[in-house]
Design a protein around this nucleic acid. Structure first.
Lengths: 127, 127, 127, 127
DNA sequence: GTGGTCTAGACCACG
DNA sequence: GTGGTCTAGACCACT
């Protein structure tokens, strides 16, 4: 189920939101594909259904999925949403780059990291 | 005072901690330089002195500053501490790079961002 | 079939109920006219026959249609039922007017909207 | 607290959201004014704090209020947000007008209702 | 069985 | 005391 591993101090529902968003943006969840039921995800991740529900609700309000009560939740097909996420990711990345520079990280070090990650095409792009 | 602007949802004391740490790591606060008094910082930022105190306490326990009771707090000169920050920044950067890649950010886009930030030497390295 | 488009979060059977009721009240479905079969409506709208059945049942219990087992459903001719709908519509409208006023909508804006809708006699009165 | 009365079948958190939004839009809650605490509202309305929290969260994500954890929630000062609500109210009103017309409500009846509501300036604009 | 709402009660970090 | 998150368990309307 989702192969999302919960970790760290970020709220669970937020990790779930980000994880599913990444799956949609990366195309591994395709348009109109049915998402697993709230209770199902909750059980498989060992968390409370309400927490999953919160993540689904935010995904819907963000326009990434649409929910039909008593039917299920489905990913919505909007090519432009992925663009929004790309831009957000770039902004966060830019902030992190500035931070790294302020702590003395060198240009070459960053270059090495970038090359390593983008050459690693076996990796599907974990979150 | 510190030209640090509080923003977002992160705890204030943490923003303060990160901001001062960056000033030290980047060399704008030099070894044995005196930090402004807790009450002074609190007043100028419009926050609770307890919050500033907490940030100072964490900076001290991290070895970045040392306090002389009834005298004030001073920047400690320990080259290895900045190294710890460098590594942390690199790790966070790496995570953000992976995230960006999963959202379809291209190698070239990242390269452009990196070049822009490292060429921008007028900038002092904001946090 | 019915040119009713299902939308939003309202229950399907309720949208169907409202839509058919409006068709009857507006006279586009006339007394003793035969309604399309449940299964037919369901297929053409891509929904579950049970859902259509539920809408028909409520229309019947509201006295708007009558069913002849093994024959079909027919529009009943009862002028007073349309009156009930008029009053209900007026009440909902009144609530919406108050709401609009509380958000700063002006008298003139409402007047324009009213004039536009009532002058638009080409429009058959969608729901 | 808030003189909002809960009624009908709409979700409580939604009624709360709408009620507070109306108070802000109508100016009875002014910019940077502090909202009562989540638990306080919950107690005074006899509902669960989580329900109030949900309403507050949605108000924040809509940009109508801003919350400072451990400090409180405050209404944000954005003149344009009220405009958004005006437009939404007008759209809902327009839909209701069309509905009323389809049920045979006459132009004159609507005019009477409109005049009555907008002349009733003793009323503060209930929701 | 589905999404959605609600309650009760708890815990947390923060100020 | 504040907002925020989470759990456990329940109920509802709808399909």
């Amino acid at each position: 189920m989702f192969d999302i591993q919960l970790s760290g101090k970020a709220p669970i529902y937020e990790q779930l939101y980000g994880g599913i968003a990444a799956l949609i943006a990366s195309g591994r969840l395709k348009a109109d594909e049915k998402l697993p039921a709230v209770r199902e995800v909750a059980k498989s991740l060992g968390i409370n259904p309400n927490t999953v529900q919160k993540a689904y609700a935010q995904l819907e309000s963000a326009g990434l999925i649409y929910s039909m009560p008593a039917k299920g939740s489905y990913v919505s097909a909007q090519p432009q949403t992925t663009e929004v996420f790309r831009v957000q990711a770039l902004q966060k990345l830019s902030a992190e780059l500035k931070n790294a520079r302020s702590f003395g990280v060198t240009y070459d070090e960053v270059m090495d990291a970038v090359k390593q990650i983008w050459s690693d095409d076996r990796n599907g792009g974990e979150v």
